[in-house]
């Protein structure tokens, strides 16, 4: 049984984003690492590795669609313990919408062969659509299991998971193969190990282009016609003065009524 972890490189959560006058967006990170593995994917990568450690998966393959730079995210996945990594990169893939991404990922998963579980993070922190996992399941014709907070059993051609929903937890059993999206409650991701770092830094990551996936057309592209920075929030501080706590509280309440806050 092979497991594929679909991951993405995103700007770091600590990056300072700037909207440039020409509408382009750039970012720098004070920690010197502007791009990272999508933070939600750390949980899916960890769960993929645990499927190998605890549920007998033979391979855990990390897949990313993106530019050459996205190799960094894949190397992090390898350093954490994924057994292989594949970069899906082609000029035709640049800027495609989530459905286009799902088509490319589905084609890659099919090409890997014998994949029983494809895992995603719940969304990517940049686009934050949360659509790709379900769309990939649709493309593959597999069962989507979203917001998974625990994988409780894998075997006999089926999988049992817990889904974390607004109203509570739901236990679901589905036949394999499945596409899973994970939530952060599922595990505590490990750090890359030193041995893993060494292995990853020496790995040559294969690149699959549209031709390798027999894809003629990928889908529609997304155009960001206008990007602008949000206006800064204005705020001010007023200290309520008074001789006693009671007086200060009374003044505060009067003020809140006056401002129609309460």
């Amino acid at each position: 049984m092979k497991v594929v972890v679909c991951t993405k490189q995103t700007p770091s959560t600590t990056a300072d984003l700037t909207v440039n006058p020409d509408g382009s967006v750039s970012w720098e990170d004070p920690g010197g690492k502007p791009n990272v593995v999508n933070p939600w994917d750390e949980y899916s990568i960890e769960e993929g590795i645990r499927l190998k450690e605890n549920h007998g998966a033979s391979d855990v393959i990390a897949i990313t669609m993106g530019s050459e730079e996205s190799q960094e995210a894949l190397k992090t996945a390898l350093a954490m313990g994924c057994t292989e990594a594949i970069l899906l990169s082609d000029a035709a893939f640049a800027g495609v919408d989530t459905l286009g991404t799902a088509k490319v990922l589905a084609a890659a998963i099919n090409k890997v062969e014998d994949v029983q579980i494809a895992i995603f993070g719940k969304s990517a922190i940049d686009g934050d659509t949360g659509q790709t996992a379900v769309q990939t399941a649709c493309q593959l014709g597999w069962t989507p299991l979203t917001f998974v907070s625990a994988i409780t059993a894998v075997g006999d051609g089926q999988i049992t998971v817990e889904r974390l929903l607004d109203d509570g937890k739901e236990t679901v059993t589905a036949p394999l193969p499945v596409v899973i999206s994970t939530v952060k409650e599922i595990n505590e991701p490990r750090y890359p190990s030193f041995m893993g770092i060494r292995k990853a830094s020496r790995a040559t990551i294969p690149v699959w282009a549209a031709g390798d996936l027999s894809l003629n057309s990928v889908g529609s592209k997304v155009d960001w016609s206008k990007v602008y920075a949000l206006p800064p929030r204005e705020g001010s501080v007023e200290i309520i003065e008074g001789d006693s706590v009671q007086e200060k509280a009374a003044k505060l309440v009067a003020k809140l009524f006056e401002e129609k806050v309460i």
């Binding site: 190397k75 750090y191 890359p192 190990s193 770092i197 830094s201």
Partner: peptide, 15 residues
């Protein structure tokens, strides 16, 4: 610095 050296430092920073 090599990629290995940088990644090792990054891992310790994260810890």
């Amino acid at each position: 610095l090599t990629e290995e050296q940088q990644q090792a430092a990054a891992m310790v920073r994260e810890f």
